[in-house]
Design a protein around this nucleic acid. Structure first.
Ligand SMILES: [Mn+2]
Ligand SMILES: [Mn+2]
Ligand SMILES: [Mn+2]
Ligand SMILES: [Mn+2]
Lengths: 222, 222
DNA sequence: TAATAAAGTTAGATAAGCCTAACTTTAAAT
DNA sequence: ATTTAAAGTTAGGCTTATCTAACTTTATTA
C-alpha cells in the first residue's frame, strides 16, 4: 500500500490537510482559501493541485465544494507528520539542537522516502510519544493521540497550570519562550489579566512576567 | 560564503563533476557527453545546465570546450559528497543498515541544507575518515584524502591483499560481495587467473572462490 | 430577495528540468 | 586533405509548480 510516489509538494499539501482537519478537532473539511493561506501559496495554485490529489484518490473534493482527506490521503499525510516530529526529536535528543532550531530542518527531512529509516529512527529514540514542542507523534500505523488542550489565555485568574506544548513552532516564538525560562513541564500561575489591552501577568518560578494575549494563545497547558 | 542556494539538480551536477574530475586522478576536465552518461540524462539537458552553472560561477566552461569546477563549485560539490558519505556512515553505525542499503537513502539525505546538522552528525559519528564502502569522507573544509588504490584485477597471481573499498555502490554488487563473505578489511589471495575468460580464482579465509574480471575491477585493495 | 462580499475557478504566463530531432563544430581516419 | 564519425549545441516541446488577472459561484447581509 505504501508505494505511491508523492512529490515534496504533494506531501506538504497532505500534511497541511492533516493539520487543518484531523488535528483541528471538530472540523473535517477545509476550503481552498484556508489551505492556500496555510501553504503560503495562492488559491489558484491550490485549485490546480486539488484536481491532481483528487485524481490520485488522496482527497475528496468536488468543484466549489469542501476538501477532506481520503483514508489513503490521511495515512500518507500522517506519515509525513510522523517523520517531521521524529526528526525533530532526533535533532534535539541526539544532535543537541535546541527546540527553536529544529522545525526548518525537519521540513526538509520529513520528505526523505524510506520506511526503514523512519522506523529505525523511532527505535533509536525509544519510540517517543511527543516531539520537542510537546506535540504527539503518530505511530507507524498512522494513529495519533489527539488531546483536547487549553491555551494559556483560557485559564482563569489565580489558576495554576503546566505547559505541555506550544502551538507556534517558529524560532522567533520559541526563543521568546526560552527568554521567559519556560520549557515543556513548567508551572505557570495566572496572577492577573488586563482588560484594556488583554495582557496577562504570569508567575513562573516565583518570578512575574507580562505577556500578550497573542503569546498566551500559543501555549498549550493542562 | 556558504549561502548560495543550490537545487537538488545543481548539487547532483556538482557531485558528478567532483567524481569525474577531482576524484578521478589526473583528469581535471570532462565533456558534456561523459557528464550526461554519469547523470543519466541527455547531452542536451546537460548543455542547458552548463550555462546555468557557468552563470553562477560554479564551473569553467566555454562553448565546445571542456568543463571544470571553479573553487566555489568544488567546495559546494565536496560538501554534497561529505554529506552523502556521512549519512551513509550514520545509517550503518547508528541505524544498523547494511552497507548495501544505504546509497539510495543517502542520495536523498545529501541534499538536506543545514551546516549545523552535518557538523553535529560528524561529531556524533566521531569524525569518521571513511564511509561504509571504504571511501574517504571530505572534512568540513572540503579537503579529502585522495588515495591511489589498485583494483583486485591488477594484483598478480600468488599475491595477498586486503579489501579497502568498493567502487560500485549498487546493492546488487554489494550483496554479491556479502555472499562471498567479504567485508572491508578482508584478506584476499589471488590463487590463479584464467587467460581465456579472465576469471580470477581467489582464496578468502582458506576457501576458494571464482569471480569475473568485472567483479574484480570493482574491488579496491592494498 | 436583491445587492454585495467572499470564496472558488479558469485562462494564460513563467521557470526549472527534462526530452527528441536536427544542426554545427571538432576530432579521427582514410 | 577530405571524408566520416564523434561530440556538442540549438530549437521547440512537455510537465510540475507557481503566479496574476479576470471570471463564476456561493454566502452574507441589508
Ligand atoms: Mn515542527
Ligand atoms: Mn514540508
Ligand atoms: Mn553512496
Ligand atoms: Mn543526489
Amino acid at each position: 500500500m505504501e508505494d505511491l510516489h508523492l512529490s515534496f509538494t504533494e506531501e506538504n499539501y497532505l500534511k497541511s490537510l492533516i493539520h487543518l482537519t484531523v488535528l483541528s478537532l471538530a472540523k473535517i473539511e477545509v476550503g481552498t482559501n484556508e489551505l492556500a493561506v496555510n501553504l503560503n501559496v495562492k488559491p489558484a495554485t491550490v485549485n490546480d493541485m486539488l484536481k491532481k490529489l483528487k485524481e490520485k484518490k488522496l482527497i475528496n473534493y468536488e468543484r466549489y465544494g469542501k476538501i477532506s482527506l481520503t483514508e489513503i490521503g490521511r495515512l500518507a499525510g500522517m506519515e509525513v507528520l510522523r517523520k517531521h516530529r521524529l526528526w525533530e526529536t532526533f535533532l534535539v535528543e541526539k544532535l543537541d539542537f535546541s527546540w527553536d532550531e529544529v522545525h526548518e530542518v525537519a521540513e526538509q527531512l520529513e520528505h526523505i522516502h524510506s520506511r526503514k529509516l523512519i522506523d529505525r529512527l523511532d527505535s533509536l529514540l525509544d519510540f517517543p510519544k511527543f516531539d520537542p514542542h510537546g506535540d504527539p507523534i503518530p505511530n507507524a500505523k498512522g494513529e495519533i493521540e489527539i488531546l483536547t488542550r487549553k491555551t494559556l489565555n483560557e485559564i482563569e485568574i489565580g489558576e495554576k497550570c503546566r505547559l505541555v506544548a506550544v502551538k507556534d513552532n517558529s524560532s522567533a516564538f520559541l526563543q521568546y519562550v526560552n527568554k521567559l525560562g519556560l520549557t515543556i513541564g513548567s508551572e505557570i500561575e495566572i496572577a492577573s489579566k488586563e482588560i484594556y489591552d488583554e495582557l496577562l501577568h504570569l508567575i513562573i518560578d516565583d518570578q512575574t512576567f507580562t505577556v500578550s494575549k497573542k503569546f498566551a494563545e500559543n501555549l498549550f497547558v493542562v
